[in-house]
């Protein structure tokens, strides 16, 4: 009871900005599955998203695959961001799939809602399969490599996601990244920020190309 009250107070004392966003979509619920190879930063991608959504007072669940996951094997996590209390944290059909390698595409290609958003890592997935009309392919890993750190492919994907689904603003996500980073890793914030913005730009420029044509 008390906890519910606290939630109510916190939720009702939103800033004007997020209140406006709340009013625009009173029943927002976004179910996201992120999948790839162990070591691609799949879990972290999900956690950053969850941490950022927490700062916007959303209800969130983050559920990892916790089997015998090893580096090089498949890894996935499921995130639900909602304005309402969340029932099951498990996702049968997702609004968004972020797929970072071939094996994961095979595993999750049927787990998307009709017209759901798919973000595909074209650096590893080379087929022409069209599963959803909103299927976007970018070479996240190649772009990360060119930026000088292959590990930030996940943040490029996140940036691209944020540009496609306007449920969180980039500043909140950057703040989440800054606060999540342990003191001894602070030097990594800058490249992650750059990667996030690069991902965002990627999608925005693609949109411009589409609408300009």
């Amino acid at each position: 009871m008390l906890i519910e009250k606290i939630f109510w107070i916190v939720r009702s004392s939103r800033t004007f900005d997020s209140l406006k966003a709340f009013c625009n979509s009173p029943n927002m619920e976004e179910k996201i599955i992120i999948a790839g190879a162990g070591g691609q930063g799949i879990m972290l991608l999900g956690k950053v998203l969850a941490e950022a959504a927490m700062r916007k007072n959303k209800f969130i669940t983050w559920l990892p695959a916790y089997g015998a996951e090893v580096r090089g094997g498949t890894a996935y996590c499921m995130i639900i961001i909602s304005d309402k209390e969340i029932g099951s944290p498990y996702i049968h059909k997702a609004d968004t799939l972020i797929i970072m390698n071939n094996l994961s595409l095979e595993k999750f290609k049927n787990r998307i809602k009709k017209n759901g958003l798919m973000l595909i890592n074209a650096s590893f997935i080379k087929n022409d399969l069209l599963i959803s009309p909103k299927m976007l392919k970018y070479s996240f890993t190649d772009i990360a490599k060119n930026m000088g750190n292959i590990k930030v492919a996940n943040m490029i994907a996140l940036g691209s996601y944020l540009a496609n689904r306007k449920i969180l603003d980039t500043q909140t996500v950057i703040k989440a990244i800054e606060e999540m980073t342990p003191p001894e890793k602070k030097y990594l914030i800058e490249i992650n920020k750059e990667a996030l913005l690069a991902g965002k730009k990627l999608t925005l420029s693609a949109h411009e190309a589409l609408t300009g044509a």
Partner: peptide, 12 residues
């Protein structure tokens, strides 16, 4: 259960 143990949620 395993799901409750593994899942993350924001808490006070």
């Amino acid at each position: 259960d395993g799901m409750l143990g593994q899942m993350m949620e924001p808490i006070f």
